[in-house]
Design a binder for these strands. Structure first.
Lengths: 216, 216
DNA sequence: CGGGGTATGATCGTCTACGGTATTCCATCC
DNA sequence: GGATGGAATACCGTAGACGATCATACCCCG
């Protein structure tokens, strides 16, 4: 059992990240450091460290002497994020399916059922579970950089999913896709994992594009 | 002309990064924050922000309450870095060659000649020029995330190149490869760019692997 | 009435000083 | 010899201050 020791800046990083993702910190708005620090009950050093990390992650942008701003969303960025995901995630998940240990498979199963049961709560929760599911498919590959990258891209994509994808008919379809994908992964069917994940990502991108083309 | 306004933490980020890359901050060693801060003539606030960024970048790792450590190099990471570069950089450069403006092409030419003329100075300088050249081939694509990612991977790769690749016969071969690649890029020959860049990256990986297999 | 320069206020970026706390290491003791 | 305990070290976080810079509102002048 590994005891979890985390620095304050580390936890703030996640808190602020989630606030950005679910829109609590609105889009092009500046981040008032003193205000946010007192609101979180911390001082500015750990907050600024977290903000610096988030800029490196691509969620914030810093204008010197003017502060941090939530990175604006754009259709071009959607295309870019999903293009990168398409070239990285499917082969990574396919490989991971081959080398996953029993523990890995148990963990992935857990992530899948968590996503499954969360399917009817609010969109932000579903999005987090969805991210964790995608990561769980890749992590067993034990490729640290690749996994981090998949996570980062999933986080970036999540903003768009939360902001634009009303749980319309999409819910059901995504669920079916997830189940088929996960089954192939459990069966260690490399080709099928790669194919299904590719299609799944493309499907989500298509939904997003349709939404973005409409009223934004 | 864009006036350059940069925060201290931003510049420290680059300074420390270069110190890590050229081994001035040795491998598994801890970073003594107070010492480094006074050495750089700054206080710990901007330094800690820079360190947090560098951890996000993958060059450092933080152990809570014990401090930041330079991320150890490993053969597995080399493979991972180059696998990612292979799947991202060639298509990105090929695309960029198609849409590059005259300014972009001038800038790339400049980066190429800078790499060319620096070829006989010390290895660390060459490595930086090499990185800038690779970025200049991708940047005209105007895909922010992709360019950032290419840069990040180039930085991570650079540690290994500096540490392990003595400028043996490699120098000449890399130079030839660069010229051929750059010519294809200028001619907007998409296929050729992709092919040559792929081969170039694979060649470097092969060299690195050979070195790592030997006495490390 | 409009525009350019200026005053003002807010916020950021950085510094300094300080205290709490976790880790490490070493000496001591059973 | 291993466990206990304590001192030293360095990290982590707080608090407050200050100059620099940006944005805005104002004022003066044409």
């Amino acid at each position: 059992m590994s005891i979890v020791v985390r620095t304050l800046s580390d936890r703030v990083f996640e808190v602020v990240r989630e606030q950005i993702l679910n829109g609590k910190l609105p889009n092009g708005e500046p981040i008032r450091q003193d205000a946010l620090a007192t609101e979180l009950g911390i001082s500015k050093i750990p907050l600024r460290e977290a903000l610096a990390r988030l800029e490196q992650e691509g969620l914030l942008i810093n204008h010197p002497n003017r502060g941090y701003f939530v990175q604006a969303m754009s259709r071009e960025q959607v295309d870019e994020i999903y293009a990168l995901r398409l070239s990285i995630e499917p082969p990574a998940a396919a490989y991971a399916s081959q080398v996953a240990t029993d523990d890995d498979r148990a963990h992935a199963t857990q992530a899948f059922t968590a996503l499954d049961t969360a399917a009817h709560s609010n969109l932000a929760d579903v999005a987090v579970r969805n991210r964790e599911f995608h990561i769980a498919l890749v992590e067993p590959g034990r490729k640290v950089l690749t996994t981090q990258l998949v996570e980062r891209l999933a986080v970036l994509a999540e903003r768009y999913v939360i902001a634009h994808l009303a749980p319309a008919g999409r819910d059901a379809r995504a669920h079916i896709e997830h189940r088929a994908l996960f089954n192939a992964w459990l069966e260690r069917d490399k080709r099928k994992v790669e194919k299904l994940l590719k299609e799944h990502i493309q499907g989500t991108l298509k939904d997003l594009r349709a939404q973005l083309k409409n009223g934004d």
